[in-house]
Amino acid sequence: MGCLGNLLWFIFGGFLSGLSWAFAGCLWSITIIGIPIGVQCFKLAGLCFFPFGKEVTYGGGAGSFLLNLVWLLVSGFWLALESAVIGVLLCITIIGIPFGLQQFKLAKLALMPFGTTVY
Rank of each mutant, 00 (worst) to 15 (best):
G13R: 00
K54C: 10
G46H: 07
V88M: 03
N6L: 13
F52H: 05
E82M: 12
G13Q: 00
G34L: 00
A62E: 09
Q102A: 12
M112L: 15
L106Q: 04
G63Y: 11
A80I: 02
E55M: 14
T31P: 03
W21L: 05
G38H: 02
L109W: 02
S29W: 01
G5M: 08
C48D: 08
M112K: 15
A80Y: 07
M112Q: 14
K43V: 14
K54V: 05
L7P: 08
W21P: 06
L109R: 02
F99E: 02
G46S: 12
T31V: 05
G87D: 03
L44H: 05
V56P: 13
Q102D: 11
W21A: 01
F77P: 12
F99Y: 05
L44D: 07
I35K: 02
A62T: 15
S83Y: 01
L27E: 06
N68G: 13
L101E: 11
G100I: 03
F104H: 13
E82L: 11
A22D: 13
F23H: 14
F65I: 14
G38M: 03
C91K: 01
G34P: 00
I95G: 06
V85P: 08
F42I: 15
T93I: 03
E82V: 02
L79E: 03
L47Q: 06
F52T: 10
L4R: 09
N68Q: 11
Y58S: 05
I92Y: 02
T116V: 11
W21C: 03
F99K: 02
F42R: 10
G61E: 04
S29R: 01
L69F: 15
K54P: 09
T31I: 05
G87M: 00
C48M: 09
F49T: 13
C26L: 15
L72A: 14
F49E: 11
Y119S: 12
Q102W: 07
F65E: 14
G63P: 05
G38R: 08
V85R: 04
I92T: 04
G5Q: 11
T57F: 09
V88S: 05
Y58K: 06
L66R: 14
A22I: 11
G63I: 11
S75I: 15
S64A: 15
C91T: 00
F12V: 09
G87V: 00
W21R: 00
G18D: 08
T31W: 01
I32Q: 04
L19E: 13
G18Q: 06
E82H: 08
F50A: 15
G38K: 04
F12A: 02
L8A: 07
L69V: 13
F104C: 09
L79C: 07
L27R: 12
S64Y: 10
P98T: 07
F10D: 11
L69M: 15
V74G: 05
L7I: 15
K108M: 10
F114I: 04
I97C: 07
L81S: 09
G100S: 05
G5L: 14
V118A: 10
G100W: 00
P98N: 03
G115N: 06
T117I: 11
G2D: 07
G96K: 00
C48I: 02
A22H: 12
G87L: 00
G61R: 13
F114M: 03
L90P: 03
C48F: 04
S83N: 14
M1N: 09
F52S: 10
V56S: 14
L109K: 03
